[in-house]
Design a protein around this nucleic acid. Structure first.
Lengths: 209, 209
DNA sequence: CTTGAGTTTGACCAGTTGGTCAAATCCGTG
DNA sequence: CACGGATTTGACCAACTGGTCAAACTCAAG
């Protein structure tokens, strides 16, 4: 009984493998982001992807592996906006652009945002390693950049890491708490005013006085 | 077979009922906040409360009812800080005090914060009604108060609802994303700098220019 | 068209889970 | 201390869940 190679060690991916793996991960994103890892069943993902349960397990040998494959696939994309923040740009522009990109991601990829939120709220049992290495390295690097801007007087003094937390909190809130935001705003689209609101917050916070 | 009365319609609660119900809800808070509704088992709650599973179900007839009892018990406490915001106080003081109280709640009641976060991230399947009535009424009321302050020139113009979202996002982030925040901050206690950081953000945002 | 690797699935299994129930035990009150 | 309601639990059940497996089917290359 041949087994579909895992995407990492696989030599050549067939047309069918490519299509099915994509369908599975998209369905898994739907289901995991809506119910969390424990709250999701392989059957739900099977139904959502249009494949049978044993067929899912032919491509990914366990529910756990579906989840981790999904997570590591997404992690890079998720951190891209922060990576794009360049130390040689204009500080205020760099920060505000980062905020804007991050808000765009909440709007365009709310499932991804909720997937991470679910995982982290529950203590990140399957992601702690990544947080402590990949994310931490990136954060330390960018915190130094921001600190440099502040020391040079190009931005108001503030705590770089808390600044980053604030950017994440404010932007991701619109994706993670979408149902609450929309319930409270009624017909008005949250994203009409959010970009201007967030820009104002960070411009006022960081504008040197 | 007598059945313990539900707390709402129960005439007199015995000493034992009082103690056990409290133990159950505290254990349920531990478990539900850490794993979400679907990810928690009645057995886990039983173990955490020191009671047997059938005994739990003697006090609360289903897992669902444990959850909703817990939720409605907590909802009032959770909204208290916002209720305390008085229209006849000094606007800046009222807002900053609200931010401070909300941050304190994240510090003192992280389980409660994560319980709500879990529920809302997953679309609030068991709480949408409460959001749409109790919370919405309160938010509409306070949005008017804030709008009044802004129209009177006592605060900078801003979007009152987005302002409230920002307060929630920034304060609850420290409880809901605790594991991430602590992983990235290392030995430094997040709550050392958070109060000052948040005060600065909102003071700069709202200070009339 | 053959062929063999790649793909798909129905049937199945063992462990878990929410919930039930009758019997046993506890406990405040008359 | 006797009694009846309150409390507790071991044993049990049906549904669900993650995962297995052998057999059947598909498909591209020769």
């Amino acid at each position: 009984m041949p087994q579909a190679n895992s995407p990492t060690k696989g030599r050549k991916e067939t047309r069918i493998q490519k299509k099915n793996r994509a369908a599975i991960l998209d369905a898994a994103l739907d289901v995991f982001s809506a119910h969390g890892f424990r709250g999701s069943t392989v059957d739900q993902i099977a139904k959502a992807s249009g494949l049978s349960k044993p067929n899912l397990l032919y491509y990914y040998p366990s529910k756990e592996e579906m989840f981790t494959a999904l997570m590591s696939n997404l992690m890079d994309t998720w951190l891209d906006p922060l990576r794009e923040m360049q130390s040689d740009g204009d500080p205020m522009t760099e920060i505000l652009s980062y905020v804007d990109r991050k808000l765009q991601m909440s709007r365009e990829f709310p499932r991804e945002s909720r997937l991470f939120a679910n995982e982290i709220v529950q203590g990140a049992p399957r992601m702690l390693e990544t947080l402590a290495t990949e994310l931490k390295d990136l954060v330390e690097e960018k915190a130094l950049v921001i600190q440099g801007w502040m020391d040079a007087g190009q931005l108001n003094q503030s705590h770089p890491k808390h600044l980053m937390f604030s950017i994440w909190a404010l932007t991701q809130h619109y994706a993670d708490f979408d149902i609450q935001v929309r319930t409270l705003m009624g017909a008005e689209d949250p994203y009409d005013a959010a970009p201007h609101h967030l820009e104002t917050i960070f411009r006022r916070l960081l504008q040197p006085s």
